[in-house]
Design a protein around this nucleic acid. Structure first.
Lengths: 352, 352
DNA sequence: CGTTATATGGAGAACGTTCTACAAATCATT
DNA sequence: AATGATTTGTAGAACGTTCTCCATATAACG
């Protein structure tokens, strides 16, 4: 009895638009108009309604909103939450969204195409207003298909030809070039890139772009014939194995460009462990300028692509798309080198 | 003209439950029953419906579902996306959720109470089925208020007295004790804790618990009278400043227990920079056993509280609550020490 | 004053589900 | 064969919004 009495009011006390309307002595439509500040409401009406809203603490139901109009939510899909680059992107997104009435909801796909698909579908089914996909793994045609249902901006996804959705990237080719140029400028000639295995990075991924840039810069430097690219698996036991093998190679190069700080930092760690001195025996450049790279202990030179800025730009692009733009935009930021100890000095000149 | 022709089909081609019903030649209610596998559907009906669903590629609208019943989504609120402890929790949550029909949507509050509130409200307004709040900053009474609207499990939030929501924690008092005991066992006596400033950690936060554990263990070790706790601000210029000041103190202790790896790692970096040897001059223990701590370069001893496991346990608790449990549960995991170089040997005996 | 334009408020149909209540059909039981 | 019990399927009202018409009230104008 008393239990029921306690349950009932809980259930019923949701303040809906109707409650507000009754309390303010106006129609539901009027309240809705005020909420969306649509045309045709007098100051008097607006005051009555906002008062009622304040008194009652009314919040519109996102679910109901989504069913009919906008939900004022944008979905963000992350391929992986462990990569320290991603949080930066989120920070950028949240920064731009904060002053607006939009909110971000994040899904994590863990690099599984299956999960990625179902998360995107869910976000569509929630009637979110737009999607920011960070380094998605799905092929461009599939994204294009989704893009007819919902505005999409892809970050870290090189599909400059896409007409159905926007892309925002740092120029990964250029980033790799900058890395190689820095090494060349310091006298290194014997340079190798450590990249991701074929299976883990598709054609439009940032990794492949960095490989292209690496090759081009090597070519320009007159080292076109020998621009070796090693592939490091992503999963844990094999990954360290491959790095150890690299470090103990007789013909190990004098300098290495890693596709990501994630790999570069582990490489640095293993190097210490194996007695390979950095930068004396081996110069290392990473990618992403993660916070770990900046640590005094690590001191890893790295290509900075400002994830935060990418997040900001992507968000602004998405909002403009939500607001009606239909021509695709493909934005490219220029990355820069952050030089640190792992690349120090010009001591590489002693090599042949 | 042709533009309109192209728009129309896009809008209209959403496959709804009605489309399925028509295609299968049954009623809408029947399809709904099949979807929820409710009682009272024959094999024949079920087959017809599932066939139609497959053919049409039907996906129920989450928005509509939320409006009426369950949305099969659980919301996860993260205080901060940069702390490497959080991704582990997410991994645990996703791991448990993957085989179920639930999905996680993540919100990031960036430690702002304002944003935290509005994210929780949004998740409620989306009619999510339950919430996992990781290290929320809101006071317990407010969470209790939210908990009448939606099942809540708080992680990293010590409110063992709460009756309206569950909590899942590692035993932070015990963790701090373990750290101190490890230091004592290695002969250190001159021990200090570096903690968070009052403003950044409320009474029920993990930080305060670790302070309690620290004091208790020191007391037990006969060092009760001198169990100093330094406070490090969280924001960046002041933070490093405080650490530098600590490192250059004349009466700097021989060992330090940091409330988080985040601080411990920065401290390690600054120590190298300032010529303070670790562990010879200063032993360091961190908290969280983050992946960075495990790097050969860093080699930081740390208390492991398995964020992944916390995420798993919290998710299971939440699901059981969604399914009807009403008595509050407060779960405590036991953390453990991961010993590494920053704590090496037993060389501390030379001190007075 | 009558007429037309404009500003303001409201009725009510969607949106895509769930779920209660009920009708119809089938099966058991006497 | 009649009655009751059970199984199977459906109608239709909710859920809380948005948004397109309409209806009225007021202002503008000749």
């Amino acid at each position: 009895m008393s239990v029921e009495d306690k349950q009932k009011p809980q259930r019923n006390d949701r303040v809906t638009i109707r409650t507000v309307a009754t309390h303010a002595g106006v129609s539901v439509a009027a309240v809705s108009k005020v909420m969306r500040n649509a045309y045709g409401v007098s100051e008097a009406l607006r005051a009555k309604v906002t008062d009622a809203i304040d008194v009652l603490g009314y919040r519109p139901s996102r679910a109901a909103r989504g069913l009919r109009g906008q939900s004022f939510t944008i979905g963000v899909l992350l391929i992986d939450i462990r990569n320290p680059f991603l949080p930066e992107v989120i920070a950028g997104v949240n920064g731009v969204l904060a002053p607006s009435h939009y909110q971000a909801m994040i899904g994590v796909s863990d690099a599984q195409v299956q999960l990625e698909t179902s998360l995107i579908e869910s976000m569509i089914d929630y009637k979110m207003d737009g999607l920011i996909l960070v380094a998605p793994r799905l092929p461009s045609e599939i994204l294009a298909k989704f893009a007819v249902e919902i505005p999409i901006v892809a970050v870290g996804y090189h599909a400059a030809g896409a007409t159905a959705f926007d892309t925002v990237n740092a120029d990964d080719q250029r980033g790799a070039e900058i890395a190689v140029e820095a090494l060349l400028a310091r006298g290194y000639r014997d340079i190798e890139m450590l990249s991701l295995g074929e299976r883990e990075g598709h054609a439009v991924s940032v990794v492949r772009q960095r490989e292209i840039g690496f090759r081009r810069a090597m070519q320009r430097g007159g080292l076109g014939s020998s621009a070796p690219i090693g592939k490091i698996p992503i999963a844990s036991p094999k990954r360290e194995e491959a790095m150890r093998k690299f470090l103990s190679r007789k013909d190990r190069p004098r300098a290495v460009f890693c596709w990501s700080d994630l790999d570069a930092i582990t490489l640095l760690s293993l190097a210490v462990e194996m007695g390979v001195r950095v930068p004396e025996d081996l110069a290392v450049i990473g990618y992403d300028n993660s916070s770990t790279a900046a640590l005094g202990l690590v001191n890893l030179a790295s290509i900075d692509q400002s994830g935060r800025e990418l997040g900001q730009v992507a968000t602004r692009a998405l909002i403009s798309r939500i607001e009606g733009r239909s021509a695709a935009e493909h934005i490219l930021q220029i990355p820069s080198l952050v030089s640190r100890n792992s690349l120090a000095g010009s001591e590489a000149t002693k090599q042949g």
